[in-house]
Design a protein around this nucleic acid. Structure first.
Length: 802
RNA sequence: GCUGAUGUGGCGAAAUUGGUAUACGCACAGCACUCAAAAUGCUGCGAGAAAUCAUGUGGGUUCGAGUCCCACCAUCAGCACCA
């Protein structure tokens, strides 16, 4: 009887759906486990075969945890605001709401066809006003606590989408989403002060179980560096120019200064600058370039000396020139640097090009001659540096910083690369920002009882003239009254970025239908933190950092009970096309999950994705390999033909059963799913050897396999005569003593090379092992003298001869 | 350029973390079943006649290295003058 996966899979999916088999309960006394996958953006292209890799992995873990007695929350939702729906609306005039609903329906169907044990009663949709009411509420709290502010600043402006982008969203100088060039543009933006949390976002990484590479990437992104701020007097004025440096010990070697093209010093001293036209011209050119272009490698350094003003090196009291150059960024530090060409590669290049003086102030400890620039901080010793001469880099840093502080010309300073989060988007399809501008009161948040502020219906989705939100055309909606003074006022027309809704969605899952709070205290207390969050590496510095920031803020204002949202974070590798390249429509190598499910069934699909390679590494799709997984499940199905009765493991299989339970139990926790599957395959091969499996063995086998292939295992479980479903079973236990073989084969080596193997009983006396070993290799060591013998108990016997 | 990861049969990959390298799967070959094919079930499958040689290359540590150390090469990913 052939296995009809279409019929069987549908049958179980309908049953699970109707009975809510996998829904989490509100029994807050039970031990809990909360597993989370990144909720998908419901794109028009439907599910990608990459999605199920992560979803299956956590589904396996979730199903296992349920069998181990946990109250499991494994939720799903949709991150449904976003540009594709809006761009589609601009093109076709179909409202994004309609597109989104259609796509969500399609995704839901696809996800259900794969048999994931999601709790479908808790689906969250970020575009639902009942959801974004709380996204807006959180924004208002951020505002009230001084963490949201308006700033006019140069922003990245996408020439294609006509929206402002966060730095993080600009990839290689082009828009991450549409690929159009990004230019700099002045705009008034809502900003979130994530920088205020920089240190805590670093420190608390020590308290969570994230993959090390994720922690490293977040730390590097936040980019803490210690140094000093130093003030340089501008000669013949009362003004100073402030710089940040990580090498205050090289201050004696600072021979000129460089300021960013946007630096306000230029305007301030416009009347004193003798080559203002030249400077202005340079500023103009720099403004046309994006941060990316300005920081391209191998680029010739450019710059102009700002003539008419000089700075004074506070240690040497020498006048030094000030230059303007785009290799100094206004967005980092103070937008100005002291240049120490002898000990900084960029400064060296610049000084060489423009013939600026280079003074060596650090030498190697061994006094050897070195080529400049010399940047080694480990072995360096200060020279030509007055009171610092002779000190190591580290000591010199400390001493000079003390000096700066005593003389009030500088101070110790910590700087971060992390920048505040640009939170405004000039788009329609996002959460309206619940703020009102009043001529008397300034920016005023909406009264919380008036939330949600719903998106008005519009018919025209084109952005405004100057890249404004389409909402800017909705005069009726814009004009309102000030919540504070009641006078006429105007609404903010920008909307929130897609990252907003995904920064807290995991909290809503805990209590998704709550109308009065974002989630109840009890639910938050019970479910926080998320026990295991799996997602892509590409979200490490954006979503993962943003959501940690929001969670910390919610912790500070007493909404959530934990400092960190996620106790554990892992990541999955990408799935590539059969040609080993990233799947894309243009390359024509896209694999459609629907086709796979139709041809092979959901179980085969799931098993294959878990078998294809190490979970955290990229893997190329293979149509041959998936067929092999289908064959494996067919062999499992056909085992019913030789099943016999029995309510305990038979002696021939007992060891194998205990070993397998142990291996699968441990490997699932370590996400070594591929070796779980090979364990199952080995077991099936063994059962086929004797053409025999008893009912007890079958039951254990099916329970172990169930998290990977839930449909076929449930069906088989019924067919071989069990009344209740596997989903009600208890995860199999193993007896460690029964996983150990009592007779083993060990290698015998001569000079470290394998020459023979011998059989010994476990923990056999060494003398007996020696006898057997020497006997086995006697012909090979004849006439040679034994220098050494090494016996590693139950592992190996090695004889060294000469 | 910097950072990180990876490199094992024809292919995807295992290897109890320093102890019999190549488990498991794919592909391939042979046999059985069949009029035949498919499906299925068995069997074989790193190279070499053998001694031996094989985990990107070259060194090293060790009784013993895929695993540890040093240098290098290749591929992939991320980052971009961060002072």
């Amino acid at each position: 009887m052939a296995y009809d996966f279409k019929k069987v899979e549908k049958k179980w999916q309908l049953k699970w759906d109707a009975e809510g088999t996998f829904n989490a309960t509100n029994d807050y006394k039970k031990k809990k486990w909360y597993g989370l996958i990144e909720f998908p953006y419901p794109s028009g292209q439907g599910l990608h075969v990459g999605h199920p890799r992560s979803y299956t992995a956590l589904d396996v873990i979730a199903r296992k945890k349920r069998l181990q007695g946990y109250n499991v929350l494994y939720p799903i939702g949709f991150d449904a605001f976003g540009l594709p729906a809006e761009n589609y609306a601009i093109k076709t005039n179909v409202h994004p709401k309609i597109t989104t609903q259609k796509n969500i329906a399609h995704f839901t169907e696809q996800l259900k066809a794969l048999g994931f044990s999601f709790d479908w009663s808790r689906v969250v949709d970020t575009t639902d006003p009942n959801y974004y009411k709380w996204t807006q509420w959180i924004f208002i709290q951020l505002y009230k606590h001084g963490l949201a502010y308006k700033a006019t600043m140069p922003i990245n402006f996408c020439t294609g989408c006509k929206v402002g982008l966060a730095n993080e969203e600009v990839v290689n100088g082009v828009c991450e989403r549409c690929g159009s060039p990004v230019v700099q543009k002045e705009k008034s933006q809502w900003m979130l002060k994530i920088t205020e949390y920089a240190q805590r976002l670093i420190d608390d990484l020590d308290e969570v179980d994230f993959l090390e590479k994720i922690k490293v990437q977040q730390r590097n992104w936040i980019g803490r560096s210690e140094g000093a701020e130093v003030e340089f007097k501008i000669a013949n004025t009362d003004e100073t120019l402030q710089v940040f440096t990580t090498r205050p010990d090289t201050l004696f070697g600072a021979t000129y200064m460089v300021i960013a093209p946007e630096h306000k010093l230029i305007e301030k001293f416009a009347d004193r600058i003798t080559n203002l036209d030249e400077v202005k011209d340079y500023q103009h050119k720099a403004a046309l370039k994006s941060d990316f272009e300005r920081s391209e490698i191998n680029k010739e350094k450019t710059g102009v000396e700002v003539k008419g003003i000089k700075a004074i090196n506070p240690l040497t009291n020498q006048e030094i020139p000030i230059w303007i150059s785009d290799y100094v960024l206004s967005s980092y530090g103070t937008g100005a640097i002291m240049a120490v060409p002898a000990h900084d590669t960029r400064d060296f290049e610049f000084a060489t090009k423009f013939n600026l003086p280079i003074i060596q102030v650090v030498k190697p400890a061994d006094n050897s001659e070195v080529e400049l620039p010399f940047t080694d901080v480990e072995t360096g010793i200060s020279v030509n540096s007055g009171f610092l001469t002779g000190l190591s880099v580290e000591d010199a840093k400390r001493k000079v910083t003390e000096y700066l502080e005593e003389n009030k010309i500088g101070a110790k300073k910590v700087n971060y690369k992390l920048r505040d989060w640009v939170f405004s988007r000039q788009r329609y399809w996002g959460e309206p920002i619940p703020m009102v501008y009043c001529d008397c009161c300034g920016w005023v948040p909406l009264d919380e009882k008036d939330l949600p502020l719903t998106l008005p219906e519009v018919e025209d989705f084109l952005p405004g003239e100057n890249g404004e939100s389409p909402l800017a055309k909705q005069t009726e909606w814009i004009n309102t009254t000030c919540p504070k003074c009641g006078k006429p006022a105007k609404r903010e027309t920008d909307t929130m970025p897609q990252w907003a809704g995904s920064s807290w969605y995991f909290l809503r899952y805990m209590d998704p239908h709550n109308a009065t709070e974002l989630a109840s205290k009890e639910a938050l207390e019970y479910w926080c933190p998320i026990d295991w969050y799996n997602g892509g590496m590409e979200h490490t510095t954006l979503h993962l950092l943003y959501s940690r920031f929001w969670h910390k803020f919610l912790y500070d204002i007493g909404v959530v009970p934990t400092k960190e949202p996620y106790a554990k974070r892992t990541s999955h590798g990408m799935i590539l096309g059969t040609n080993g390249e990233k799947m894309s429509k243009s390359k024509g190598n896209v694999i459609n999950p629907d086709d796979i499910v139709n041809e092979f069934g959901a179980d085969t699909f799931r098993v294959y994705e878990m078998f294809m390679g190490p979970f955290d590494q990229t893997a190329a799709w293979s149509m041959e390999s998936i067929r092999g997984c289908g064959k494996f499940l067919d062999r499992v199905w056909n085992m019913q033909e030789f099943m016999i009765d029995g309510d305990s493991y038979s002696p021939e299989y007992e060891k194998m059963m205990h070993k397998a339970i142990k291996k699968v139990t441990n490997d699932i926790e370590e996400m070594k799913f591929n070796t779980c599957i090979s364990t199952f395959m080995t077991m099936v091969n063994e059962f086929y050897k004797l053409k025999r499996i008893n009912k007890a063995e079958f039951k254990t086998f099916l329970t172990l396999l169930n998290p990977f292939a839930p449909h076929i295992t449930e069906e088989l479980n019924k067919l071989i005569g069990f009344e209740s479903d596997i989903s009600t079973y208890t995860w199999p236990e193993y007896d460690d003593a029964k996983t150990i073989d009592d007779e083993i084969e060990i290698p015998v080596q001569v000079n470290g090379k394998l020459k023979a193997t011998i059989r010994i009983v476990l923990d056999e006396e060494e003398a007996l092992v020696k006898e057997k070993a020497l006997d086995a290799i006697s012909s090979m060591i004849d006439g040679k003298s034994i220098i050494k013998e090494i016996y590693v108990k139950n592992k190996i016997y090695n004889v060294v001869v000469k």
